[in-house]
């Protein structure tokens, strides 16, 4: 799995509402327009945050695409998923944002 084409898809989802609409309507057709292998298609189709974080793809692109697809109010859900997977800094935690 590479990141180049995935990050372009994430950028378009984050920035172009028409791409979000097409992705929602028919993700397979939308993703087939990009040079993605089957694992990349699977990660994007499922918006597999944990899997993409492990590569990792660009964090801002991933958060931007997630928000575009699910809405900004879902940001806590995004962070919860990221935190369930990624290693965090070894410091005392303040209140979670």
């Amino acid at each position: 799995m590479s990141t180049n084409a995935m990050e372009v898809v994430l950028f378009r989802l984050a920035n172009q509402p028409e791409d979000v609409a097409r992705f929602r309507a028919d993700p397979d057709t939308y993703l087939a327009e990009h040079k993605l292998d089957s694992s990349e298609v699977g990660a994007l189709r499922a918006m597999d945050i944990e899997g993409m974080a492990a590569i990792p793809v660009n964090w801002m692109l991933m958060m931007g695409a997630y928000q575009a697809l699910h809405g900004r109010p879902k940001q806590p859900e995004y962070l919860q998923r990221i935190r369930s997977h990624a290693t965090r800094r070894p410091v005392s935690r303040k209140e979670e944002v």
């Binding site: 964090w59 962070l79 290693t87 965090r88 800094r89 944002v97």
Partner: peptide, 9 residues
Amino acid sequence: WVGMADMGE
């Protein structure tokens, strides 16, 4: 940390 696990710290 923007979009990262430590976002908010």
